[in-house]
Amino acid sequence: MSNAPREPFFPADRSIRASKDSVDIRYLGEVDYLEAWDTQAALAADRAAGSIGDTILILTHPSVYTAGKRTQPEDLPTNGLAVVDVDRGGRITWHGPGQLVAYPIIKLADPVDVVDYVRRLEEALIKVCRDAGIKDAGRIDGRSGVWVPPDRKVAALGIRITRGVTMHGLALNCDNTLEYYEHIVPCGISDAGVTTMTKELGRDISVEDMTAPLVDALVQALEGELAVADHTFASAPDPTKGLPAQARARRDHSDQRSKGTV
Rank of each mutant, 00 (worst) to 15 (best):
Y117P: 00
V115T: 14
F233M: 15
A171C: 02
S51F: 06
P150W: 01
G145H: 05
H61P: 11
G98M: 07
D230S: 07
D85F: 13
P62C: 14
G224L: 07
D175Q: 11
V23I: 13
D136F: 11
I161H: 04
S22K: 03
D191G: 04
N176C: 03
S190K: 11
G202Y: 15
R250N: 14
A236S: 06
S15H: 05
M197K: 09
E30C: 10
V23M: 07
P239S: 00
T66K: 05
S190H: 10
H183K: 13
D24G: 01
G133I: 09
H95F: 03
V262E: 09
T39Y: 10
D38R: 06
L170D: 01
N3P: 14
R130Q: 14
L178N: 01
P73E: 08
G260T: 04
W147F: 08
D54R: 03
T39D: 11
R88F: 01
P104E: 10
L125A: 06
V118D: 00
A249V: 03
D255F: 07
D216Q: 13
N173F: 08
R130D: 03
A42D: 14
G242R: 02
L125D: 01
V118C: 05
N3S: 15
I140F: 03
I189A: 00
A227P: 01
W37L: 10
I205R: 01
E122G: 10
Y180H: 15
E179M: 02
L76C: 01
I205E: 05
Y180V: 09
D87L: 04
G188E: 00
D75P: 00
S206N: 13
W37A: 06
T66M: 07
T240H: 08
S190G: 10
T261Q: 11
V128F: 00
G164V: 08
V83T: 12
S206V: 12
D75T: 05
A41W: 08
R130W: 04
A42K: 13
G29W: 06
D175S: 09
V148S: 04
G169S: 10
R160I: 04
I106A: 08
K241V: 15
V128M: 02
A12H: 08
R250V: 06
T93R: 07
Y103N: 12
D113H: 06
A212G: 08
T240L: 12
I140D: 04
N176R: 01
V31E: 02
G53L: 05
V165G: 02
N176Y: 02
H168S: 02
I56L: 05
L81T: 06
E122I: 06
G142Y: 13
K259E: 12
V165N: 05
